[in-house]
Design a protein around this nucleic acid. Structure first.
Lengths: 348, 348
DNA sequence: CAATCTAATTTACTCGGGTGCATAAACTCG
DNA sequence: CGAGTTTATGCACCCGAGTAAATTAGATTG
C-alpha cells in the first residue's frame, strides 16, 4: 500500500512564497517541463495548455527562483559594475547612464566599489566572477590591458570612461586629448596667449591626455610651451585654489586658466575671488566635465561638456550586445564646448 | 550499433572554472559533505582532513557556486539597495557610505535605481525579492509605512535618509526639522529678521520638515510668519534662481535666504550676482547639505552639514545586524552648522 | 576484553528549474 | 489502412551545494 509520505508543508521560520514550477504544473495539469517550455518559449506547446499555465502562474503568483535558474542555466542575469568613485559627479553620472541603459533588459546590476575590496581591482573582479555575473562593466579604474585581456577570456568585459591601449573596441570613452585641445583652442581664439594649465592627478591617463591636447593646441598656434604655467594638481577644488595662489605668489602672469575639471575650476575661481581678481574681466577660466554646479558658478563656467551619462548608456548597451553576441557599433563620444560666461574675448 | 556519440567535452564558448566541491572531496580523499563542513565550520572535523581540504581548495582554486549555495541554503549574501537619485550629490554620498559599511561583510549590494523599474518602488522591491536578496536598504523613496510593513514580513528592511511614521526603529535619518530650525536660528542670531525661505519639492517630507523647523525658529523668536517670503521650489539650482528673481521683481525685502539645499543656494547666489547684489554684504545665504562644491562657492557657503556618508554606513550596519538578529543601537544623526562666509552679522 | 557510548564521516536526498531522450498522439501519404 | 513522419508531452536526470540520518571508527568503562 502506498502510504503517501507527506513532506512537511512549510517551516515555521519564514513564509517563503514557495510556489514552484511544480505547483504550477499540478494546477495546470501538465508536467513541469511543459511549464518550463511555456515560460521560456523553448518549444511549441498547445495553446490550451499554454493558457492554463499562464493562468496558473497568475493565480499562484509565481516567480521563478533565480538560484535554481542560475544553477541550471548558468546565466545569472546579473551584470557586475565595477566603479572607482561613487560620490564623484563624473563617475556617478556615468553610473546613472549605465543603470538607464540596463532598464528593461532583465539584467540587474551588482555594483562593487573599488574600496569595497580594499586591495586591487583584480580582487573585485574575482568577487564578481564568483557571483557568476554574465558580464562586467568597468567604470574607469587602472587595470592594465593584459589583465583585462585575461579576464576577457572568462566573460564579456566593457570598460567605460577610460581608453585602454590594447583593449580597443571594448572601451567606451571620450577623447580626452580632444577635450584639452578644444578648451585651449577656445581660449586661443579669444586671443589669450598666457594660458595656465592646472593638471589633474599625476599619471592619470585622462589628465595626461587633456594636457597633451592642451600642448597640441598651443603648438598649433605657434605658442611655445612654458612650464611655469602648468601646475600639478589632483582634480580637487583645493588643487585649483593652491594653483592660483602659487601662480600669483610667484608673479607668474596669465590671462586664462584651463582647469583639469570643473571642481578645479571652482577652486581657482575662489582663489581669484579672495584676491578680488575679476572673472572673466581679469582672468578667464575654462573647466572640463560640465557638472551640474558649473552652470551656477559666478559667473557661470564655460567648460568642456563630457557626455558622461550617454557614455554610461552606450557602455551598458555595448555590454548587453556583447553578451548576446550581437553587433552594436558605437563611435567615440564627442566632447562639446559649453560656452557660458567665464571666458572673455580680448579685443585689443 | 551503438556508435558512441561523445557529447562534446566543453563548448568552445567559455572555459568555465567548473571546479566543484566534489573535485575537492576527491582530491582530499573525503566526502563532499566533509568538505562542506570544513568550509562552513558547521561541525567538527579532523585536523588532518581539514588541512587536506584547505590545501585542495587552494590547489584547485575553488570558488563556491553562489547559485548552488543560494538554492540549498536560501541565503544569497546579497543585499538590495533601492535608490532614487543616482547622480544627486546627497544620495550618492549616502550610497557611498552604504558601500563602505558593507565592506568585509561578505555581502554584495545589488543596486536598483527607481528609474530602473519605471513604475513604482513596489515593483523594484518585487524584483529584489525575486532575486532572493537577504535584506533591502531603501534610500529615500516615498513608500508608505503600510507597504513597508507588509514587505517587512518577508525580509529585513531598513530605510535610510528618510523618516517614516509608523516605521520607527528601522529608519536611519537626520532630523530635517532640526536642520531648518538651526539654519534659521543661525540667521536670527546674526540679527536677520526678513528671512526668505526657498522650499524644496512640494510634498517632499524632507522639504516640509525643514520648513517646519524654519517656522518654529521664527516663532520662537517672536517673528510672525510672512508667506510672501516663502517660494515653492524643487531642490534645483534653477529654483533658487527663480526664487530670488521673483522676490526681487516683486519688491519683497529680505536680508537673508534659507535654501532648501545647497544646489538651490547656488542658484540663488547666481541670481544675486546677476543683479550685482553682494553676498553676504547685501544678502546672506545659508544652504543645507554641505555638498563638496559648497566650500568653493564665492563666497564659501555657510550651510547645514548632513552626515550623509555616516548615514549610509549606519544604515548598512543596521541592516546587517537586523539580518543576523543582533542588536545594533544607533541614534538619530545630528546635522551640524558649517559656518563659512555667506552669512553676515548685523551689528546695528 | 567485550559492551557501550561518542565523535567523525559518509550516504542519500533536497533545493527549483532546465533539457535530452523516449514515447504517445496526430498527421501524411502511398 | 498501415507505415512513416512530425509534434507535443512527460520522464528522469543534471546543475552544485547543504544537511538529516545512518554508519563507522574510536574511546571509555565495567
Amino acid at each position: 500500500m502506498a502510504d503517501r509520505k507527506t513532506k512537511q508543508p512549510q517551516s515555521a521560520e519564514t513564509v517563503r512564497d514557495g510556489v514552484t514550477i511544480e505547483d504550477i504544473a499540478k494546477r495546470a495539469n501538465v508536467s513541469k517541463s511543459t511549464v518550463s517550455r511555456v515560460l521560456n518559449g523553448s518549444a511549441v506547446v498547445n495553446h490550451q495548455k499554454q493558457a492554463a499555465v499562464h493562468q496558473a502562474v497568475i493565480d499562484l503568483n509565481y516567480t521563478p527562483n533565480m538560484f535554481a535558474q542560475g544553477l541550471a542555466s548558468g546565466k545569472s542575469m546579473t551584470l557586475g559594475i565595477l566603479t572607482q568613485n561613487i560620490g564623484s559627479p563624473f563617475y556617478d553620472s556615468v553610473a546613472q547612464g549605465v543603470i538607464e541603459g540596463l532598464a528593461g533588459s532583465g539584467y540587474s546590476p551588482t555594483v562593487i566599489d573599488r574600496r569595497w575590496e580594499q586591495t586591487r581591482d583584480a580582487a573585485s573582479i574575482e568577487t564578481l566572477i564568483s557571483r557568476k555575473v554574465d558580464g562586467i562593466l568597468i567604470v574607469g579604474g587602472d587595470m592594465s590591458a593584459s589583465e583585462l585581456q585575461s579576464y576577457k577570456k572568462q566573460l564579456p568585459i566593457i570598460v567605460a570612461a577610460r581608453e585602454v591601449k590594447g583593449f580597443e573596441g571594448q572601451c567606451v570613452s571620450v577623447n580626452n586629448k580632444k577635450i584639452g585641445y578644444l578648451a585651449t583652442k577656445h581660449l586661443l581664439e579669444q586671443r589669450h596667449t598666457r594660458i595656465a594649465f592646472i593638471h589633474g592627478i599625476e599619471g592619470h591617463p585622462d589628465a595626461q591626455n587633456r594636457f597633451a591636447g592642451h600642448l597640441e593646441a598651443l603648438e598649433e598656434a605657434g605658442i611655445s610651451r612654458s612650464d611655469e604655467l602648468v601646475y600639478q594638481g589632483d582634480f580637487s577644488g583645493h588643487a585649483g585654489l593652491m594653483a592660483v595662489n602659487y601662480l600669483l605668489d610667484h608673479g607668474i602672469r596669465f590671462s586664462a586658466i584651463v582647469a583639469a575639471n570643473d571642481m578645479v575650476a571652482f577652486g581657482a575661481r575662489l582663489a581669484l575671488y579672495r584676491r578680488s581678481i575679476g572673472v572673466p574681466d581679469d582672468v578667464s577660466i575654462i573647466g572640463c566635465d560640465d557638472q551640474a554646479e558649473a552652470a551656477f558658478m559666478t559667473p557661470p563656467l564655460t567648460t568642456m561638456r563630457q557626455p558622461s551619462y550617454e557614455m554610461g548608456v552606450v557602455a551598458s548597451r555595448a555590454l548587453l550586445s556583447l553578451i548576446s553576441n550581437e553587433d552594436y557599433g558605437w563611435s567615440e563620444l564627442a566632447p562639446e564646448l559649453q560656452i557660458r560666461e567665464s571666458v572673455k574675448r580680448f579685443t585689443s
